[in-house]
């Protein structure tokens, strides 16, 4: 695996650029653990100071240091994105693989559920969800809600691969070797879909962070938790742009864009590596 990463870094410009961007963001995230100020406290520093040596990205109108706020917010947003992506990937994998392999009635039922989820309009549902949950809204609840809406496209994709794998001779070979359905799915078919899933996971992280930002900016999440979205929300509440506190908005936006571009480049550069032919060629086939 390390060798793969090294080769990718050397020979693939998108991968190199993408990983540098992601590493910068990760650096900021790690730094958040060493924050000199408790992230939820306000008025710990003088408000509205422009970027300077003392406060790299300035301070905001609530008396918080913008750099350390961004660090914590990015950490939460990223954690949120990863959780959504992982949960929805598990759902997509289970549904896609089972549907494709078992086929028949199971497939038809699972796919009609799948298609129902595809056509559900996300934004109104999540808005409704917020009004239902209201005070109980935490990022964990939101993550689960978004994960259960974010899997269907991937499940379709995985199913189509599983469908073709089912008719391959090696699947019959596995059946006649006495392997159980679980074994065939986990050990024979999963390796074929994992690389693709890996690439869509990166995109899904982007998607969920983006959606979280959208919801937060209009205040439809728990605004107490600092995330990139809630940071922009608070900046808007204090009319930061009108007041000329541009760094309060620019810092989170720039960071999250860096993250977006980084993850996107990584997922693009993965494509070449994902191709099973490339993998086999590397194995020396």
């Amino acid at each position: 695996m390390l060798k793969v990463l090294r080769d990718l870094f050397r020979h693939n410009r998108e991968f190199a650029a993408g990983s540098i961007l992601v590493l910068i963001v990760l650096g900021i995230v790690v730094a958040s653990f060493f924050s000199p100020y408790p992230p939820l406290d306000s008025y710990v520093v003088p408000p509205d100071i422009p970027p300077s040596w003392d406060h790299l990205l300035g301070t905001n109108s609530r008396g918080q240091d913008v750099f350390w706020q961004v660090a914590v917010a990015m950490r939460n947003s990223l954690l949120f994105g990863i959780s959504v992506a992982l949960i929805s990937r598990v759902i997509a994998l289970v549904i896609g693989l089972v549907s494709g392999y078992v086929g028949g009635m199971v497939d038809r039922v699972l796919m009609s559920i799948n298609d129902t989820f595809v056509v559900i309009p996300l934004f109104p549902i999540l808005t409704l969800f917020y009004f239902m949950m209201h005070d109980h809204m935490s990022w964990v609840v939101l993550a689960v809600a978004m994960a259960s809406l974010g899997w269907p496209y991937d499940a379709r994709l995985i199913r189509s691969i599983a469908l073709s794998l089912r008719n391959r001779e090696f699947t019959t070979q596995s059946i006649f070797s006495g392997m159980s359905t679980r074994q065939i799915l986990m050990e024979e078919h999963l390796p074929y879909v994992l690389p693709i899933v890996f690439s869509t996971t990166l995109n899904n992280i982007n998607w969920s962070i983006g959606l979280e930002v959208t919801l937060s900016v209009i205040g439809l999440t728990n605004i107490e938790t600092p995330t990139i979205g809630t940071m922009i929300y608070w900046a808007n509440q204090h009319t930061a742009m009108v007041a000329g506190i541009w760094w309060w908005v620019l810092a989170p936006v720039a960071t999250v864009i860096m993250m977006f571009i980084g993850l996107f480049l990584l997922s693009v550069s993965m494509n070449e590596f994902i191709d099973p032919r490339t993998r086999l060629a590397r194995m020396g086939a």
Binding site: V4, D7, L8, R10, H11, N12, T278, A281, R282
Partner: peptide
């Protein structure tokens, strides 16, 4: 002549 990520074959 193929090269995959620097492996020449």
């Amino acid at each position: 002549v193929t090269g995959h990520f620097g492996m020449q074959r």
